[in-house]
Nucleic acid binder design. Structure first.
Lengths: 224, 224
DNA sequence: CATGAAATGAGAGTAACTCTCAAAAGTGTC
DNA sequence: GACACTTTTGAGAGTTACTCTCATTTCATG
C-alpha cells in the first residue's frame, strides 16, 4: 500500500483528491488508528509505559476505550505495530534467487532500518527503550520476531533445499532472530547512540562467521 | 493432602546431610510451594491453562489467592519455575576451564534434560506444550532464556577473552538461546516424540557449524 | 431519502495482579 | 509452659487490561 499519508501523524485531512480508491470510512479508520498511536507515543514519553492507561489513551485520541481495543488487540501492539512488514516481505521476495540468502537478509534489514528512521526517527528509539524497560513489550517483540522467523525459514528453505519445517532450519532461523533482537536491546541499553545499522552489520557478521577472536570451536583461544 | 510431593522434592533419603538446618517454617514453605505447583499442574491438565484461575489453584492447594501470589509473581511462573538453575550453574562452573565452552554447554544441557526427565517426566512435556499453545507462557520462557543468556555470556567471555557486555558476545549468546528455545517448541509441536536430547544435539551442531547441507555462505547450495 | 452495513460508545463482566492490615503460626528466651 | 518477637497468612478492597453485548450513530448506495 502506498498509504504514506497515514504516516503523517498530525496532518489533518487537508489533502482531498489524492486517493481515488479510498472512501471516507477507510480514511477515518486510518486517521483513528494513527490518532491512537500518536496519543500513546506522547503519553508514554510523558509518563512512562505502565503509568499510561488505555483510558488515557482513548481520551487523548478522542475515542472510546472500546475503540482502542478494536484497533489494537493489546496495549503493546499500539506501540509496536506498523505497516512495514508487507513492504519488507516484498523486498525479500524481490531479491535475486541466486543471491546468498544471508546477503538478502542483510539487505532487507538495512531497508527496514532506513524505513523506520526516515519515517519516524524517535519511534525507533522509543520502541527499543521500551523493549529494554518493559517486559511485556519485550515479550511482544519476541513474538513478532518469531513470526518473522517463519519468513526466514521460507527463504532459507527455498535457497538451500532443506526442509522448511525441519529442526535444523527452524533452529537456525530462530537463532538468527534472537541475535538480531539483541542488537536492538544493546542499542537501547547504550543510550541509542551510534548507527543502528552498523551494529546490525556487526551482529550479522557474528551470526554468519561466529565470534571474531575465539572461533566457535574454541580450541584456539589464547587471544589477548 | 498432597504431602507426598513435598517429601519427593526434599528427598530425605537421598540427602541426609541437608536435614538439620531446616526448621518447621522452611519445611512448610517448601510444602506450600510444591502444593501450589502440583495443584496447578493437575488443573491445567484437566481444563487447560487459560481456563485455570488463580482462585481455583488456591482452592485446590488449600491456601489463599494472596499466598499464591506471594510464592509466584505470575501465573506462568508457577508452571515454569523450578530449582534446577543453581545446580546447572554449578555444573557449568565445574567444567574444566580449558574445555571448549561449546562442549561445556552441551554437557550442561544434557544434565538439565536428565534432571528434568528423571524428576518429573510429564512436567517437561507439559511445559513444552504450554510453550507452544499459550503465548504468555512462551513469553516467560523467552524471558528466562534471556536470563540464562547472561550466564552464557560470562562463560564465553571467560574463555575467549572477549568483552562479556560487548555486542558480539551478547548477540552470540542470545542467538544460542533462541536456537535452543526452538528445540523445545519443535519437540512439542511434533507430539513430544523422540528423545529431546537428540534434538538438542542436532541443534547444537547447527549452532556450532551452521546448516548441514547449504553452508551459511550459501554459494554451494545445489544439494538435493 | 430510505435501507442496509459498518463503526462506535456505553456498560457490565472477568481475571491477573497489587496493597494494606489484622490474625495466626513458628522461634527463641525465661 | 508463658512470654515477646518475627514471619507467614488470609481477607478484602482496588487497579487495569481485556472481552462481550447491545443500542446508537455514521457512512455507503440504490
Amino acid at each position: 500500500m502506498t498509504t504514506m499519508t497515514a504516516a503523517r501523524i498530525t496532518t489533518p485531512a487537508d489533502r482531498p483528491a489524492e486517493r481515488p480508491p479510498m472512501g471516507l470510512r477507510e480514511r477515518k479508520k486510518l486517521k483513528t488508528r494513527q490518532a491512537i498511536r500518536s496519543a500513546t507515543y506522547t503519553l508514554v514519553e510523558e509518563q512512562g509505559y505502565d503509568a499510561t492507561t488505555i483510558e488515557q489513551i482513548a481520551d487523548r485520541a478522542e475515542v472510546s476505550p472500546s475503540t482502542v481495543f478494536r484497533y489494537f488487540p493489546t496495549k503493546e501492539d499500539i506501540v509496536l505495530t506498523d505497516e512495514y512488514d508487507e513492504i519488507l516481505l516484498e523486498e525479500l521476495r524481490a531479491r535475486p534467487a541466486d543471491e546468498p540468502w544471508m546477503d538478502s537478509l542483510r539487505h532487507v534489514m538495512h531497508k527496514a532500518l532506513a524505513l523506520g528512521v526516515t519515517e519516524e526517527p524517535e519511534v525507533s528509539r522509543l520502541r527499543a527503550r521500551l523493549g529494554v524497560e518493559v517486559p511485556a513489550v519485550r515479550a511482544r517483540m519476541v513474538e513478532s520476531m518469531s513470526a518473522a522467523g517463519l519468513l526466514i525459514r521460507q527463504a532459507v528453505a527455498d535457497r538451500t533445499g532443506l526442509d522448511q519445517d525441519g529442526l535444523e532450519v527452524r533452529v537456525f532461523a530462530m537463532s538468527l532472530m534472537g541475535g538480531l533482537m539483541e542488537v536492538s536491546l544493546y542499542w537501547a541499553e547504550n543510550g541509542c547512540e551510534g548507527e543502528l545499522s552498523d551494529l546490525m552489520d556487526r551482529a550479522m557478521d557474528v551470526l554468519e562467521h561466529g565470534l571474531p577472536a575465539g572461533k566457535p570451536r574454541g580450541e584456539l583461544r589464547g587471544k589477548p
